[in-house]
Design a protein around this nucleic acid. Structure first.
Ligand SMILES: [Mn+2]
Ligand SMILES: [Mn+2]
Ligand SMILES: [Mn+2]
Ligand SMILES: [Mn+2]
Lengths: 220, 220
DNA sequence: TAATTTTGTTAGATGAATCTAATTTTGTAG
DNA sequence: CTACAAAATTAGATTCATCTAACAAAATTA
């Protein structure tokens, strides 16, 4: 069995790999708020457990075993988020922190039951895919709103950031997944966008916001 | 904030105090499966935090602060058990181990929501009272079935042991809380009882079982 | 009361997960 | 190609929670 600490390293390494391809010690260190020497020694420990390939000064990579275990933790995290929203009535902005804790619960039947009650969902409340019981996951390739051009229409499908602050901001603008947003103009200097969606005729979003919104580009 | 480890000591000390009055190092040690020197040093630490009164060779006692914190953990444990049974459909024999983990979750709103969904229950699935938000709890004084005499009728209200094995045994005999059981005879040698309840005309229970069953004595 | 058993404490060690400081390796910019 | 900066590693310390071994106090038994 892996400790809670090890689980957090595995999960974060898995997610970073899918975000950015290569993951270096410093990346994990920043994401986990843990100093680099600590990360190095944990990588050696995980390598001993055959969960990570580790070679000094080389990028960090999960083994197949590591990917599987990480995927299962992410599964538990995302099922929990879905459960908190759909069954318990939490807002999507409230669930990430709670799931961060519950994801370490050791009880297959607890998550089985959630899955069943939810009707075997494929996505979490933030649009991220829920890995299957073997930790396997298909990552859809969405476009970032920030990469759209004037005139494009994007159907929002996922957020890149599940923090309470960001999601509260989206709530305040009535931005939710499923909405079709149209790019009305882009400020060349800093990428600020003016968009329209639903009843909103023109809403201004900073680049910081638009690069955290993913969706499918609609033709027309 | 207290660590998960500290929380388990507090909770166990609280429960043992109410079970047996005085609690000594050896009692906590046995209940937690932790060696006595470890318990002693943890008691010193909790005393520094004003959660426990500690004097060498004296019984262990929680301070008011300690009782409150312990009560709140027990509240989370018992609300969780109730939630697992009533909302998620687990059997009463399956929930203790899961609650043992979830009780350490740091999220007041998570337990608020459970409480709300359950309609502010006063008892957990094993008949134990759920402490209020300040950790206060009223322990009802029930009679043990093992203390009953031939001819007595006891309305089952709580079990003393929430382990999966014991509750599965009760399930196998269709023994549940709320049932009225009548003592038909008692073997003087070892206290084995023959009882009747529901459709069962005569069921034989060992002392080990009857001393774990609590209820209210019915007159008549 | 004296001997023995039980309970509790002290002392010192260990492993997990973290840190800081110092050093080394790698990458980059002139 | 050298110098500097960034990234990574090594070495050594710290804190938490645990253990074993040795000793001491309290309780029980004879
Ligand atoms: Mn999340
Ligand atoms: Mn976590
Ligand atoms: Mn329980
Ligand atoms: Mn616990």
């Amino acid at each position: 069995m892996n400790s809670l600490t090890e689980e957090n390293y595995l999960k974060t390494l898995f997610i970073l790999s899918n975000e950015t391809g290569e993951v270096n010690v410093i990346d994990l260190s920043k994401r986990l708020n843990i100093k680099m020497p600590t990360v190095t020694s944990m990588m050696k420990k995980l390598a001993d457990k055959k969960l990570v390939y580790y070679e000094s000064y080389k990028p960090l990579r999960l083994t197949e075993k590591g990917k599987k275990e990480a995927g299962i933790i992410i599964r538990k995290h995302r099922l929990t988020e879905m459960f908190l929203v759909k069954v318990m009535g939490f807002g999507w902005e409230e669930v990430h922190e709670i799931a961060e804790q519950l994801e370490h619960t050791r009880s297959p039947s607890f998550f089985e039951k959630m899955d069943e009650m939810l009707g075997y969902p494929k996505l979490d409340p933030h649009g991220s895919p829920i890995p299957d019981k073997n930790g396997k996951v298909e990552w859809k390739k969405y476009s970032k709103l920030s990469d759209c051009k004037t005139g494009d229409t994007l159907k929002l499908a996922a957020v890149i950031d599940s923090s309470e602050e960001f999601l509260k901001f989206l709530n305040s603008r009535e931005l939710k997944l499923g909405l079709k947003v149209k790019v009305k103009s882009i400020e060349p200097f800093d990428g600020t966008m003016v968009i329209s969606y639903g009843k909103k005729q023109s809403e201004t979003l900073s680049h910081t916001v638009t690069e955290r919104l993913l969706g499918e580009l609609m033709d027309i």
